[in-house]
Design a protein around this nucleic acid. Structure first.
Lengths: 174, 174
DNA sequence: TATTGTTATACTCTATAACTATA
DNA sequence: TATAGTTATAGAGTATAACAATA
């Protein structure tokens, strides 16, 4: 944690608004979202520790449940991770029998990824604990704002403008 | 970028809700906020590049404006950065005459930090460009949701529960 | 030749420790 | 001795390149 880029901008112009030509009437969106995200991650860390999961492992468990994924590369792509980075995570999850990693008989290069019963159980209890912590925060908001926040976040998060893949370099052949 | 932790959880249970004992009816808050923040940062990067600013430099310019800060350590603390990390940023900003860094006559250890006119101008044009990009995103939301989102983000961001300083290690003497 | 999974290497970012100059 | 600022070093996290197995 304490990886704090975009921190202070949020307090900017929160109340004072200079109408014409002055400071913008609202703080940058990123200036609130990024530090909030960092704080949320920091708040979740103890919960994950208590359940013996890293954030990557938790992300994998969460994603494996919804969509049965066939290849590790697809999983990595789906969670925007590098394919080389999740290997150690999968190794650990498999060793602890939270996931299965079976070679596909039809294409023996491929590893079929699936959640075990215990994996599902651990995911559920962990997520319950995490959301319980989040509820404490959301309780500060009026019910209408809370609903609008979740709705708006979902809209923005799934926005096609933001889902764009990393376009910079990486387009070199090979 | 592509530092993507907490990515997929957002799509979870977005529509299907299993009432009792099943999956939670909403995705984890962090699972939407963190990737959204990363996407926002990625979207801002080209704008910052065009204006010749790193995100840390932009953060410094933004913060220097609102609160006149006396010491570099205080600035670092305020933007949750390590005091050693902003030095190169300040060096660059000073060399480009976007900020001033004057020794305090009353305590010659201290550097008085202030924004130059050009620094203020660059900050304003950069922020205008960034917020213009953000407006494109926010335009997807109904006006009421947009207002609620900004209100809720500000509430959560300034929440005392999340403002807690890193409590772990660091409390060692020295 | 292309692709899946893997290992090994290099790079980026960040924090920690050590130093100076003032007080 | 304590503090502001600085420099140098080391560590964590990540991506890139190279490899083996299979298609």
């Amino acid at each position: 944690m304490s990886t704090g880029i975009f921190v202070t901008m949020a307090e900017n112009a929160a109340d004072k608004d200079t109408p014409s030509g002055g400071r913008p009437p609202r703080p940058d969106l990123a200036a609130m979202v990024v530090p909030l995200g960092r704080a949320l991650m920091a708040a979740e860390q103890p919960v994950l520790d208590a359940h013996g999961l890293t954030m990557w492992a938790y992300t994998v468990l969460l994603h494996l449940d919804e969509t049965p994924i066939r290849t590790q590369a697809a999983l990595a792509e789906a969670i925007r991770a590098d394919k080389t980075r999740i290997i150690a995570v999968l190794d650990d999850l498999e060793r602890r029998e939270l996931i299965r990693r079976q070679p596909d008989p039809e294409d023996r290069r491929v590893r079929l990824l699936s959640l075990t019963a215990e994996g599902r159980r651990l995911r559920d209890t962990t997520q319950a604990a995490i959301q319980k912590g989040e509820e404490r925060l959301l309780a500060q908001l009026p019910p209408a704002d809370r609903a609008a926040l979740l709705r708006a976040l979902h809209t923005l998060y799934t926005s096609p403008e933001l889902t764009a893949r990393k376009p910079g370099r990486g387009s070199s052949r090979t």
